[in-house]
């Protein structure tokens, strides 16, 4: 019997008690109407039992008579029934980039560990308010799935999946996102946690499709300090983490300014795309505490637009 590989991280490394304390008082509200199997705190697109009026609909045979709006029917000389919005539970789909580029660490934690912490924090938030959360680890060949669930035991499963292995595969995010699109029939919140260091177009297309299907898309970008600052003043041989055969021996002094400009341009490209599609993009460095990142984002999320 083959021995199971040791996990890359402890569960406490991924979701610490301090993070739990920081997130305990927060609520993750859906920005768009969602669909859920469970009764919950989020507005649903489905019309159902609720006190919140949505709109009037012309009566058709079979509609419950108790929903007839007599005042409106009398005014228009036709029968109208009232429709109400249904409160439902949120389904959170978290997609974590486990490509080898996420293994890069210069600020203490690897990008993947930081991504796992963010994912765990989000799952913790969702489960605490009764929502369900699932996980997709974009990996080489096949995606590791943890189907959405809403129990505390589910949180452990998610954490175990995150801690199982260090990043180290080729980038497969467009495929994973497409799989989400196929699997998640109910509208929910899709959170992608990645360094976004790849060609944005395929991922952006996949995310746009998810957005079009009614999912709320949330982007967490992780920036490695060294990759952002490019703190070199000598000749450096850069070896690609995903493909070790790709090497570049470069004098970094003349390259520094140009690299930084290009890095900023990529950031800008993502921001503009997110603005265009009304997608929240949370960009943070790996040396920032996760609870700070999540807390500040969730507080910003509940504030009225423009405040």
């Amino acid at each position: 019997m083959a021995q199971a590989p040791l996990p890359a991280y402890g569960l406490d490394d991924i979701l610490s008690a301090r993070a739990k304390d920081a997130l305990r008082s927060l609520e993750l509200n859906a920005r768009r109407a969602v669909e859920g199997a469970l009764h919950g705190v989020h507005r649903s697109r489905r019309k159902g039992i609720s006190t919140e009026f949505d709109h009037h609909k012309q009566y058709q045979p079979g509609d419950p008579l108790k929903h007839l709006d007599w005042k409106v029917s009398a005014r228009h000389d036709r029968y109208f029934v009232k429709r109400y919005l249904e409160d439902t539970a949120l389904t959170l789909h978290i997609v974590v980039d486990r490509s080898a580029s996420m293994r890069r660490a210069s600020g203490g934690a690897t990008k993947f560990l930081q991504a796992a912490r963010i994912a765990a924090g989000l799952v913790y938030l969702a489960l605490r308010q009764g929502d369900s959360a699932g996980l997709a680890l974009s990996d080489a060949g096949e995606t590791v799935w943890v189907t959405p669930g809403s129990t505390q035991a589910h949180l452990v499963r998610v954490l175990q999946a995150l801690a199982a292995r260090e990043a180290g595969a080729l980038d497969q995010l467009p495929v994973t996102l497409q799989q989400i699109l196929d699997r998640a029939r109910r509208k929910g919140l899709v959170a992608l946690v990645s360094d976004l260091m790849f060609d944005p177009a395929p991922v952006q297309r996949a995310l746009a499709s998810l957005q079009a299907q009614g999912h709320e898309v949330l982007l967490f970008q992780l920036r490695d300090p060294a990759e952002e600052d490019f703190p070199f003043n000598r000749w450096v041989q850069f070896q690609d983490l995903e493909d070790p055969a790709r090497r570049h021996r470069l004098d970094t002094i003349p390259l520094k300014r140009l690299y930084r400009e290009e890095y900023a341009a990529l950031q800008r490209e993502w921001r503009e795309w997110a603005r265009k599609y009304n997608v929240h993009l949370v960009s943070s460095r790996t040396d920032e505490p996760v609870e700070t990142v999540l807390t500040s984002y969730i507080r910003r999320r509940v504030e009225p637009r423009g405040s």
């Binding site: 080898a100 580029s101 996420m102 293994r103 890069r104 990008k111 360094d195 260091m197 790849f198 060609d199 490695d224 990759e227 070199f232 450096v236 041989q237 850069f238 070896q239 690609d240 983490l241 995903e242 493909d243 790709r246 570049h248 470069l250 690299y259 290009e262 890095y263 990529l266």
Partner: peptide
Amino acid sequence: VEWGATYVL
């Protein structure tokens, strides 16, 4: 250096 931002480079 093992580099994760090869795309930018």
